[in-house]
Design a protein around this nucleic acid. Structure first.
Lengths: 221, 221, 221, 221
DNA sequence: ACCTGCGGGACCGCCCGTTCGT
DNA sequence: ACGAACGGGCGGTCCCGCAGGT
């Protein structure tokens, strides 16, 4: 019965995606469920038993696909990040102007709270906090993922400057830090208080910031 | 021998602080060490064995003072928060002007990274992230601690407005969110990257923000 | 070993000896050993370590089959009772006359001491005494088992009266109490003194009682 | 508060009994409470913490008076037996005739159920069952106590025969076994079923038995 | 090829019975 | 008589291999 759920899980993707062998399907399903679990309860807070229950598989079934809990955690983290990356891309899709693209980033952050792909908040933030002093392998992963996100923002800004959509004097790195830190921080606050207000304030603030501090004013003004 | 370490730990406080029975000393020592451990490895990532090793006590010795790991965690969190609260107070001590006081808050956040009382970063942030979907009791504690911190900032701002040190149109709540979210977020980034730059940027940004957006300009300007 | 497959093919068709997977065999083995242990040392007097030693399994192996010590105890008790029930049935087998059947019951009780299936005496008695004020779940089990035994005796008597093998004025319930209480009490005495004499006396007494008080005299005498 | 109860416990005896130092009072109090506990939960089922709670003392306080849990158990058993022995004596007091004395024994057994000095049933029975295969020291104690009880009955019967109150052909030992086994067995049944009926039946049966089988008929009948 | 289920064994948090300094 | 500390054992769970069967 649990297995049925597992099977049906990915079969809906069959039409639009490449063929997946049963094994690969199971593997993906495990990753999806584990990513969810780890994102809510953390790496140390999730046991293999929890994952068994979540996936409907026996231990052996999981171990068939992943050599260890750690390996699973690493891949599940990648999976979660990939999901979020796709979400960002879908927000950015079709938006050319740097202002629009920065707004899309804000929308993405707000979406983590209001329309989450993975409940439990931002996997990079969660993993960063849990792993920084405790799990180097995971921390490196989190660092790389964060860097990718940061780089996305930096690129939007530098290209925006090149295209003369943003002011030339902007420090792209500092600006990316502002966006990232404020968004992640506000996400944390809103999750802690279970109140979206804080996230909303951060988005409001950054939206204004984009307009007032980043947008290049028309030359004739 | 291990016990001796425990004894010596708090005895240096005896001269200046209230008398502590041996039991209470040990209790405090356990809290201090456990707070450190939990702050680095998290609640689920720290085992009683780790705490035994850190304290030099046997299990029974710890259990004498705390009914469960959870109870210990709760009290250790309070201990850590209290330590940080005292730090904030020491930063605020003698500073009357709202601008100065807000700068002290920034200095406090920067100190978490550069001159930590407890290695492992901000206990409220760490605990908030770990507990929000996994441990309600801890989350409530973290929420209360965060609220206290937030309230400190809000009060500084509202009193600053009253004293006409800050602009009257400031939204104190929104402003506190900005300070908290940006500082905690930057702290996370700096810890993740093991690079104080991000924290520094947040402090720079907020320092400028204080001057430009909050400080009430002299009437004659 | 290679033959196992051939064997197992037929084993599912075997009507009299149900096929037992390796897991089920282990489970039964644990039950048998645990039943023995509990019967000698009691529930609180037996530790999981004892059971590990007795079964030669590690904790994980035991825990695979039983969710807790309590669950194991409950099932082990049922196992022990079932064993004794079968023993009673084998004593009763082929005996039609109520007198014979009551004598079989006595033989069964004497057998507990002299030819035990499970050393440690009567599991119902042992469990009744240990659990009555301390372990309701176990007590309920013991009560049900005792009731089954009592019912066996009551039925023998009532059917004996119906068949005019026993006197019509007999109070079957009171008589069953006499049999049970005296037998269990004598069993306790003989185990305490490590001397079968007391059991023997009870059997002698009840044997005479059957003849003198229960047996219906021929009409022509 | 607990301590207050402990203190007051024996002070009412001070007037009529030999002087008891505070230490001795405490010791007696521990014995009384422990005897109660062991009688209900058994030796292995009672922990020192239970005893602490029951007595209101700390561990050190208990260990001041008893070298080990085992030693306490042994003495608590003796205490319980002594209490029961006194009860028997009070039932026998003033009764000279063997018939009366045997009836007193039955009344004593019935009293265990209906007006217990120690809840949890007969300590000898309880201890016999728990210790027979598990705790030789306790079993020896139980055996001795049972023997004392048995001897009381045997003596009543032999003296009754000597005094021509009972029939000369009675086997006193067998008769004592009958009384003991039936009473203890019925006690077990009544406790298991939480229904005094079984005990009542045993008493009824033995009362009749005394009249019909033991009482010496007047010579002229 | 994939999954099940059994078993291992280390370790978990907790509590035991015990000792001893105060 | 207390209360701190011990140290090992409690019941239970962890993560992990591996044999077996479909």
């Amino acid at each position: 019965m649990q297995q049925r759920r597992a099977l049906s899980y990915d079969q809906k993707h069959l039409s639009k995606e490449a063929y997946m062998s049963k094994g690969t399907q199971t593997r993906e399903m495990i990753l999806a469920r584990a990513a969810q679990l780890f994102n809510q309860r953390g790496y140390f807070g999730s046991s293999l038993s929890d994952i068994m229950q979540e996936t409907g598989l026996e231990k052996g079934g999981i171990y068939n696909h992943f050599a260890s809990k750690e390996q699973l955690a690493l891949e599940a983290f990648d999976y979660a990040v990939e999901l979020h990356q796709q979400r960002i891309q879908s927000f950015l899709a079709g938006k050319k102007h740097a202002i629009e693209r920065l707004q899309a980033i804000l929308a993405y952050f707000q979406g983590i709270l209001e329309d989450p792909i993975l409940t439990g908040g931002c996997p990079i933030l969660n993993t960063a906090i849990e792993s920084d002093d405790a799990h180097p392998a995971l921390r490196d992963r989190a660092q790389a993922a964060m860097e990718r996100l940061r780089d996305t923002i930096v690129r939007i800004i530098t290209r925006g400057i090149e295209r003369q959509e943003l002011r030339p004097e902007i420090d792209a790195d500092a600006c990316a830090t502002l966006f990232l830190a404020l968004s992640e921080g506000a996400l944390m606050l809103s999750k802690l208080y279970q109140d979206p207000t804080h996230m909303q304030r951060a988005v409001n603030y950054l939206t204004r910031y984009i307009e007032v501090e980043l947008r290049k004013e028309p030359a004739n003004s």
